[in-house]
């Protein structure tokens, strides 16, 4: 069993590191995920944030929602800055016996999948002790819902609209976890704010390693996925229960599915609650739906085989 495993919500009460009054939309999935991650994190903590919805909504100058040291950088270099902070603090703690700090870098899917991937790759390769969290809302929501490398097949965005020539995005989602795992880092995991216990314990586990770790968390977006503000957690849960978002971890190369879904709900249930994807249920788009289903099933089967290898 993990040392310091969190078992009840009451253990987390009072550990909030964000203040209310931030300007995120009502029902923002990213803020729920970030809030849970910060509550679970060990202290003292330094947060680095790439340009994203999170940065824009959390610090409307001259105010800030963060109750912990926080630095904002360009779109592409959150991982670089986090590694610089880690290296500097390592020297200070060696010279002056200072207390060790924990560092978390946040990036959206645009800042991780597309723009920040080379900085992330470099930081993982150099082996700095920090957590990189990618909160994935599957498009550039901050600038107005443009497609990104994380957008799933068939999803409608403003740059991949549904029309007569194309029906949403024509490419599959990039498998970022595999890119990260290929760096042979100590810990990488996917998570969902709907499964908060799984998420907070993955943060604790990531911080127990002396090296880089990566957490890929789904962050449903009410504006960009087009669902009611009250359904954020419901959508995140459906993503897990339909196997669209498998919850797994890769610990020193050993795969493990942390939330097995023996009886998955049909993928249609996840699609029909969001207007960006509900057009896939129309009979003329059956081919795209089959392709998306095949992608989801293949990934799940692959994960199952990999976790069986290390069981």
């Amino acid at each position: 069993m993990l040392v310091g495993e969190i078992k009840t919500i009451k253990e987390l009460y009072g550990l909030d590191l964000i203040a209310p009054g931030h300007r995120a939309c009502a029902g923002c999935g990213a803020l729920i995920a970030v809030r849970q991650i910060l509550m679970a994190s060990k202290r003292p903590l330094i947060v680095v944030s790439a340009t994203s919805c999170l940065e824009v909504t959390s610090t409307p100058y001259p105010q800030t929602m963060w109750k912990t040291p926080w630095v904002h950088l360009l779109f592409e270099n959150a991982a670089t800055a986090a590694s610089g902070i880690e290296a500097a603090l390592k020297v200070l703690s060696r010279k002056y016996n200072r207390q060790e700090h924990y560092i978390i870098a946040f990036g959206g899917d645009g800042g991780t999948f597309d723009i920040g991937i080379q900085a992330l790759s470099g930081a993982l390769e150099r082996g700095h002790r920090f957590i990189y969290v990618c909160y994935d809302n599957e498009a550039y929501m901050n600038t107005g819902i443009q497609r990104s490398g994380a957008t799933p097949l068939g999803a409608a965005t403003t740059t991949s609209p549904v029309g007569t020539k194309i029906v949403g995005k024509t490419q599959q989602k990039k498998d970022l976890m595999e890119i990260v795992v290929a760096h042979r880092i100590p810990y990488a995991a996917t998570a969902s704010p709907s499964h908060w216990k799984d998420l907070v314990n993955k943060v604790r586990k990531a911080q127990s390693y002396d090296g880089p770790s990566f957490i890929h968390v789904i962050a449903p977006c009410t504006r960009g996925w087009y669902f009611d503000t009250s359904e954020t957690i419901k959508v995140a849960r459906l993503a897990v229960e339909t196997r669209y978002w498998p919850l797994y971890e890769v610990e020193n190369g050993r795969y493990r599915i942390t939330h097995p879904v023996p009886n998955p709900k049909p993928l249609e249930e996840f699609l029909k609650v969001q207007r960006r994807l509900s057009h896939l249920l129309l009979p003329e788009n059956a081919e795209i739906l089959e392709s998306l289903k095949a992608y989801v099933n293949e990934r799940w089967e692959r994960l199952q085989k990999l976790s069986a290898c290390f069981a």
Partner: peptide
């Protein structure tokens, strides 16, 4: 409380919850 994005939910002394209507955006989660 764990699913509130704000946070705008407060635990009362008797363990039950109350809302901070100064900050609640009314999302309904």
């Amino acid at each position: 409380w764990i699913y509130c994005p704000e946070p705008a939910i407060i635990k009362r002394d008797d363990g039950k919850i109350d809302f901070d209507y100064d900050y609640c955006k009314g999302c309904g989660i």
